[in-house]
Amino acid sequence: MTLLTATFYYMAAASVASALLAVTRKNPVHSMLWVLALFLHVAGIFLMLGAEFLAAVQVIVYAGAILIFYLFVVMLLDLPDEEARPRFGNHWPLAAAVGLCFATLAWLARVGTGVAPAATRMALEGPPQGSLSAVGMALFGPFALPFEIVSLVLLAAIIGAVVLAGRRAAGS
């Protein structure tokens, strides 16, 4: 096992651990800080997968913008800690068994077909495939129309957020 593979497994274990902590902490701010750790580790995995631009976007947009937005809203609303209440109904063992069955099914399907065929032609030539220029050429070449549509989606979301959050109570 090379050092890089070991690094990947560290990143994977750390992201699973921080995701688990993020969905189980009682304090919302602690939960968000663990999500931040998750985002950074996922960005590291993106780097190892050769997706440099995705890693940068992950850090800038997810960790930098989205999470700060969440933290701001938590600060404004002054969320209390979650109180411990029974989280699931009485039938949760049944549901867990069904979920386990589906997981086993997915595992069996994976063993049956496998995703191996392209693994042999991994020898990359020229600039690495995930390099910034290649992604940029793809975004402004064949994906130009979806790219523009995404900007429209973001504009609609901005307007929606302003309309939803900026509405004053009736009469004032």
Partner: peptide, 16 residues
């Protein structure tokens, strides 16, 4: 990621 950003904007606007 872009759609996630849009979702966060609308979702947190709804929460507020």
């Amino acid at each position: 990621i872009a759609v996630a950003a849009a979702e966060v904007g609308v979702g947190l606007g709804l929460v507020i």
